[in-house]
Design a protein around this nucleic acid. Structure first.
Lengths: 343, 343
DNA sequence: GCTGCTAACTAAATCGTTCCAGTCCACCCT
DNA sequence: AGGGTGGACTGGAACGATTTAGTTAGCAGC
């Protein structure tokens, strides 16, 4: 049953049926009512979205391309919140959300994605060439990484990390350490040795956070190069665990008494594993997170962290894509939350 | 730049260009290589997904229609896991995921959704008529609710709840109570009085869980009608809090010593609020959950709960939609996990 | 009665592909 | 030489809508 069939059946032109669905003002209310009734009656459920999108060039679909796997992105609090914010705005404007992962089979991206009216890209893609396959005339907004010729949405990573590190270092600290998230070029889950060449030039977010920490160290009279660093590859409990066990199981004389973590997930894993070992927080170990996820604030000890509003970040990106606000790069403010893990 | 332009530019037919992209065996490797090179060179990034989907009738997009708002669904552990499982399967088969909410502006559903090749519907829709607007010839699988003429995927709610309640009632219990999730027809966030007419006939999942609890009560010599019940409208910390505060702040003589909760989110909220009040778990208060979400197992006290594999549920639904397994209704097994909250 | 105007409706081109049904030609077999 | 075969490529009709540029009919104004 197509629009054409319906038109023939009713003895009107296809244009009129089309208008009945799309432009009520173009035909008499009476005829329109008749058409809609008959349509329902004959089992025609409205114009086919495929044909419509071909003809009009718009689908009311926005694609979100995620650097990590969909499985990860859907389970991680920060990216879920981002998606939430995006979905919220799209929903109110009658758009829908197509989820794509840039990771594994990037094949699906150029394939299906050209259906979308616009693209929101989250996190650094492994293959930047991916973008050359996207239709260049459709809008693209990058979230949490930089890309030429497109608007990006960020938070103030460096100042935020400087501020929280500075706060943490006000308390006398003997052995501070940093747990990075996806800092290195090559996958590395564990201690980072001195070889600074390992640091990825592309991970601008992570570098900015680290730079903030290091500025505070320097200011506090600590040589940043002396501060031990670990790296974590994926922001999940499972991946964090072995690295953090390695840290907490160091001999007491080497064990850090302050851990600056690049995410709340990492910090929460530290809390869990520290509790299991009978370490007292903050007496034996102080720590800070980043993100301000809800889970970190539910139960004692509440995380000391930087709250970023990922939902709002998503809303902004979505509004930019829909042209509701100018698509120019934005840096969002964050808020330091002093919890129990580093008073 | 379209396929036609490219064909003209190269002096070949459109059919040949199309074959170069879709059916390598239909033309000489040499010509194919030439076409692909020139395509890239002239800025043609492959066949337009919109036209293709119109012509072929397939888009490689599967729509997931969620009963709750997208914001909720993305933040809730259970539905995220379901989405994860779906995404995982779709990804490996080169399909993508379109997210739709059946809730607020159901308008977007009939509109954009007809682009999808198939539909997975999760949770009971407020307006069942919604489905009549979906193209009837495309496959549809329902998850966690029943709908005629379509395959559904469930867990064994009644036996699982019977088993956990039975386990809980082995310990002498003076005042058991049930905290339901979306049981009532009319929104009701708080105590449910005797009026059984309030119970929704459509919420088959919830009813099954309650039935399981009640069977165990009866068997233990407790009149199910005497067991106080509360209801919670949305499975979030924020919505749970006032109801649970109401329960925990009852005078000690009335306060339940066993809470059978229909979700881990509810149970976790109970843990948090009970801790704040200095109640000891399980000495002063025992409780059980449902779902087996990771968050409930990270930290002490670990929840006693029913673990359901939502990820696998998603995988199954996705495989049914893709025709990788027969689309016939399935009931999945669950597993009881004895944690610290009800040993 | 003619003109001009508006509301209501229509004919036909178009969107960018895919794919069926050929056509053409080179080559092989007998 | 003639017939058969198969590989390589093409023409053009769909797919199901939207939209532009009309056409008609009715009515008011002079």
């Amino acid at each position: 049953m197509t629009l054409k069939d319906l038109a023939r059946e009713l003895g009107v032109s296809t244009a009129t049926v089309s208008n009945a669905f799309n432009r009520p003002d173009q035909l008499s209310p009476k005829l329109r009512a008749h058409i809609l009734t008959e349509a329902r009656h004959l089992g025609y459920s409205g114009p086919d979205a495929r044909a419509r999108s071909l003809r009009t060039g718009r689908s009311r679909i926005i694609a979100v391309i995620l650097a990590e796997s969909l499985t990860y992105s859907l389970n991680d609090a920060v990216s879920s919140e981002l998606l939430s914010g995006i979905a919220e705005v799209l929903d109110t404007r009658g758009h829908t959300l197509l989820l794509l992962s840039g990771r594994q089979n990037a094949a699906s991206v150029p394939g299906a994605s050209s259906i979308a009216d616009g693209f929101i890209v989250y996190g650094l893609m492994p293959s930047l060439k991916l973008f050359s396959d996207l239709p260049p005339e459709r809008p693209l907004v990058a979230v949490d990484f930089d890309i030429e010729d497109h608007a990006t949405v960020h938070v103030d990573n460096e100042p935020a990390c400087y501020a929280i590190a500075r706060h943490a270092l006000r308390t006398p600290t003997r052995r501070p350490a940093v747990i990075n998230l996806r800092l290195t070029e090559q996958p590395c889950n564990g201690r980072i040795d001195d070889d600074q060449a390992l640091l990825s030039a592309e991970r601008t977010i992570t570098r900015a956070r680290l730079a903030g920490f290091q500025r505070a160290f320097a200011e506090a009279g600590i040589d940043p190069a002396e501060v031990p660093m670990w790296n974590i590859e994926e922001n999940t409990f499972e991946v964090c665990t072995p690295v953090i066990e390695e840290i907490l199981d160091l001999p007491e004389a080497e064990r850090p008494d302050l851990l600056l973590c690049m995410s709340d997930r990492i910090a929460l894993t530290v809390v869990t594993l520290a509790e299991q070992r009978g370490l007292r927080i903050p007496e034996d170990l102080r720590l800070t997170g980043f993100d301000g996820i809800a889970e970190g604030q539910y139960r004692a000890p509440r995380l000391t962290t930087i709250r970023q509003d990922s939902t709002e970040k998503g809303r902004i990106a979505a509004r930019m894509i829909l042209g509701m606000e100018p698509a120019e790069s934005r840096v969002m403010a964050t808020e330091m939350m002093i919890g129990d893990t580093c008073p």
